[in-house]
Design a protein around this nucleic acid. Structure first.
Lengths: 202, 202
DNA sequence: CTCCTCCCATAACATCTGTTACGGTAACAG
DNA sequence: CTGTTACCGTAACAGATGTTATGGGAGGAG
């Protein structure tokens, strides 16, 4: 065997290129050639690492989920209280800086690409389910005495609010600057009684 | 002049075909030929009514906004109280039936298509602004004594929650059935003090 | 009835897209 | 140093896509 060729690493790099194209040019320009150009290679390498375009997209989608999950777990582990963990994990889902804004654009792109694609749709549902379970668990740890239904409904509402804020924030950063998004999150958490009225900072 | 050819009507019909393709096949299959097939005509008519593909998309996007605005205004006019108006207008933004679910898919599709397209992005921002103003006005009419910032932050949070719920509901109806979405809306409105705790019905 | 206008289907065209096939070349074995 | 292996760049190919050009035919004007 020759020494080059770190297949997983190259797959990750190509997936990263997929994100870049998706974030900067949109799903309509998401072509094999555009990905290769973004990765600084040729279509030959792309097709050598993935059997076809869909496999490339599926891998990139999966990797996006892994990254998000990893980051959420780190934030959760570092948080000092359950409330802080809930807020931090939700906040990382919004478009508060260039990276998370790009991730939101990519996420919306994959959501749009999932229409009519059973595999991508399935991936979305699986990932969303684990996301729901995480937030539900965090809400429950903040309010252990709430009835189950109140916990889940609150968690679902928080998830929807965050996702909507991320989509708006990434598409119209002037109307939804980071401070506004954080105010939305804090106001919602406060309304549900999950933090004390006035809060700020990241 | 010959008698056939109702240009605006045909444009509307073609825009409707754009929605259908976008909802059923996704943005990646949104081609002139697919639109023509969905409209039951040939590409000749499509290119005869619109100078190019982008103009077709822009018109379909605009028309979607008009429809939504019209429906919101009707609901608002028919509502007996400000609270009812707020809830009804927000509820029609969620994926509660086949039509609104399809609209949500279409909306996400346009959002994804707006990446890297200044004109579509501008349209989104304009439409979203008028949507923000509508919800802000409704919140203010429910709670006229709230300070301005509280009104806007609450309105923004509601908007984001509804949009997120619609996206989730249309992509994973099993996990977010209509009853769940309505529970999310009612719980959020109740949390913000905009309706009395327990409510149901459309 | 005859022409004439203009609506739109048909088909052609250049370009782009996913995918496949081929071949050069770099790295290791001996 | 030479042969071998497999990585991957190059290029070809079929099909799809946006767009343009051509022509048939249906309705009004005279």
């Amino acid at each position: 065997m020759s020494r080059t060729a770190d297949m997983p690493a190259q797959q990750a790099q190509l997936s990263h290129a997929v994100w870049n194209v998706l974030a900067e040019q949109g799903i309509e320009r998401l072509t094999i050639r555009a990905v290769a150009a973004a990765a600084g290679c040729t279509t030959g390498l792309v097709m050598h690492r993935f059997p076809n375009r869909r496999a490339l997209l599926l891998h990139a989608r999966q990797l996006l989920h892994e990254r998000t999950r990893e980051r959420a777990e780190n934030l959760e582990a570092e948080a000092s209280t359950a409330r802080a963990a809930l807020r931090a994990v939700l906040a990382q889902g919004m478009a508060l800086d260039d990276r998370t804004a790009a991730e939101s654009v990519v996420w919306v792109g994959f959501l749009a690409a999932a229409v009519g694609d059973d595999e991508l749709t399935g991936l979305h549902r699986t990932n969303n389910k684990s996301w729901r379970e995480r937030i539900t668990r965090l809400v429950e740890s903040v309010e252990p005495n709430w009835p189950r239904e109140r916990v889940t409904t609150t968690a679902y509402a928080l998830i929807a609010m965050v996702e909507g804020a991320a989509a708006f924030g990434s598409t119209d950063p002037a109307a939804y600057p980071p401070a506004t998004q954080q105010a939305m999150l804090d106001a919602t958490l406060a309304a549900f009684g999950l933090i004390r009225p006035a809060t700020s900072a990241t």
